[in-house]
Design a protein around this nucleic acid. Structure first.
Lengths: 366, 366
DNA sequence: TTGAAAGCGCTAACAG
DNA sequence: CTGTTAGCGCTTTCAA
């Protein structure tokens, strides 16, 4: 076969393939630059030309290629969020806030769920790094491990280099100087407040139940729990803190065990509402009434709190707002107007509030 | 200033910017083609060369640019899923299945939540089209509207053209010839089965409650509900079907209204478990016991079903498996080995099972 | 086994 | 207001 000019390969494009900006330009009789201008609407184009281009796009069923755009321009219009479990309402609500705020800034949301896989988080961050996401949001308590912090810090640097930013949501920030934002809520404060609620009702032997022992969320909540005792100059029995995991099953089993161990307590502070659901189930099995025999409180205020009978007194966390704030923080760095020196670590902390329902009563006299 | 050669602009790259394949090639003293080969590991490269390249990558902190890759190659390694509400466990579980199956095929998952916005779905499909997602999965009941079907069908064609595919998950398929896959579960069958469960217990006046009237899911479930009556040659009172919306509040309000209207029923079939939660709340307010006074069943078997007291008898839908199946169907078309004629509409239907718990008892004699 | 070079589709100077 | 053109970073022939 005769040698064809090199361009021949390109010319022989699959006629079925998606239309490109060049096809539109040809059909409308203008240049690709003009098509780009009408698509982006960020530059003056004569009305007639615009109409012609728009018609050509419609007739051809033209759809811009986001990758070409990301490559040529600079922003990807995508934010990434990494959670540990998308079906957990705690994360689902945050994800909802992220997705809606992303959408209102014209971005799509890449959601990654690690399903508890420890190292999966880092893998996802790398994947998101490849995607050049405008912002990468890491949600939920982190393992408090220095080495891990260092690795994440290093990723933050890389992210910053490629023009995007890392946002830590619902977990403590990194050390100063690392280009990461932190958007958190007052974990310890909420725990202290609800503990105080229990203390006010007369409980002093409160069992704190749940949360992976090494998780930052757990340590913060336990800290708040202790602070509430300290604030009233009350002693707290260390045997009454049992951490280990989240989850309904875990809450159920540990409650039974605490009862079997003959632990003396009149109330339980479940690490979150899901654990509280397990506590309810266990107490019910043992014929103990809530709050008659034992008072129970939770944390997060996810929907199950109102399905439980009696309705659960818990700490409301502004989950959606947390997600929104994370996106705002993450894309703020993208704004051309942003002060370059502002790209230091910044932190936002949202407040929490105790929602009083029906699961707390004064301890039974004995 | 003296005129610089045109390339100057490009040469003056921000030295802080992310490293490219060219940087790695330079550092390793090889060509970019070689780097590409070691990155993709799909072509023989001398061991020594490979090592040198790998070291250069490590030293430079090189991270491939997914957009450049998508542009040059063809597959994007991203699947998109659009749901109506990410915090709804029904969708969250499907999303979990999608995300985990996507991950195991090395893909990331773009999750879009329309938050009930009617036309948002189409907008998201277009966005996903721009992303050239390997597969676009539309989840949940669709409005049964011919025009809408036509529009979606048209998008399916476009998707097919750009090498990706549309998967309808938990909703009926499009008409034959349209390049879309359908992965659904047996909506009518599940409804019929649980209705029969109620009928067996002796109920004949069952109130069907919930679901947007025009939603395919609703029509399918109501159809199954009626079929169960028909199968036993029983009459069914049309006044006992009240559709309109999903949601706890709606279930609550409508139950109250049905009671106030003096409707005669001994059991309620809630369109889903969330609606059932509302029914429980309303019945409790009126001092009616479940299942003593009224039996209740739900649909979906999401976690709240076991928190309700008494635990809810419901229909288990293989949500996660649905999501996984959708991804498999969607990326199957991508396989080079795929028979091009196989790209016809295909459908998969998963089964459902009735989960018997404590919310059904024979109707009270009267 | 490796390199050179031509694009993938789009944006953004720059020059009319 | 519009066209030209040089890339963005990568993959993939084609040649060596």
């Amino acid at each position: 076969m005769a040698a064809e000019p090199p361009r021949a390969r390109a010319r022989r494009r699959d006629p079925e393939a998606a239309r490109t900006i060049r096809d539109v330009a040809a059909r409308a009789g203008v240049s690709t630059a003009t098509v780009s201008r009408v698509v982006n609407g960020n530059y003056p184009v004569a009305a007639g030309t615009r109409t012609a281009v728009e018609r050509a796009m419609r007739e051809l069923g033209y759809v811009a290629n986001a990758h070409a755009r990301a490559l040529a321009g600079s922003t990807t219009r995508v934010v990434g969020i990494v959670v540990s479990e998308i079906v957990d309402p705690f994360f689902a609500y945050i994800a909802r806030g992220v997705q809606s705020e992303a959408l209102s800034s014209g971005r799509l949301c890449l959601v990654c769920s690690t399903q508890g896989g420890d190292s999966a988080e880092l893998r996802f961050v790398d994947l998101l790094l490849e995607q050049r996401a405008d912002a990468v949001i890491l949600v939920g308590g982190a393992v408090e491990d220095q080495e891990y912090f260092a690795t994440i810090g290093q990723r933050a640097e890389q992210l910053a280099k490629s023009g995007s930013s890392l946002v830590l949501c619902g977990r403590p920030g990194l050390k100063a100087g690392v280009p990461a934002y932190a958007v958190d809520y007052d974990n310890a404060g909420g725990a202290a407040a609800i503990t105080d609620h229990l203390l006010s009702a007369g409980h002093t032997r409160i069992l704190y139940l749940g949360g992976p022992t090494t998780l930052s969320t757990t340590t913060a909540r336990v800290r708040g729990f202790r602070q509430a005792y300290a604030a009233r100059r009350l002693e707290h029995d260390p045997a009454l803190v049992r951490t280990g995991a989240f989850g309904r099953q875990w809450g159920h089993d540990q409650t039974l065990r605490a009862l079997d161990d003959g632990l003396d307590f009149t109330a339980v502070f479940a690490a979150n509402d899901i654990v509280a659901a397990g506590v309810y189930a266990a107490l019910r099995e043992r014929g103990l009434s809530i709050p008659g025999d034992i008072s129970v409180v939770g944390y997060d205020d996810v929907p199950v709190a109102v399905e439980l009978q009696p309705a659960l007194t818990t700490v409301r966390v502004p989950l959606e707002e947390l997600g929104r704030a994370a996106v705002r923080a993450g894309i703020a760095g993208q704004q051309p107007s942003a002060d370059p020196f502002a790209h230091q670590q910044q932190a936002t902390t949202l407040g929490t509030v105790v929602v009083v329902r029906d699961s707390v009563a004064p301890p039974r006299a004995r």
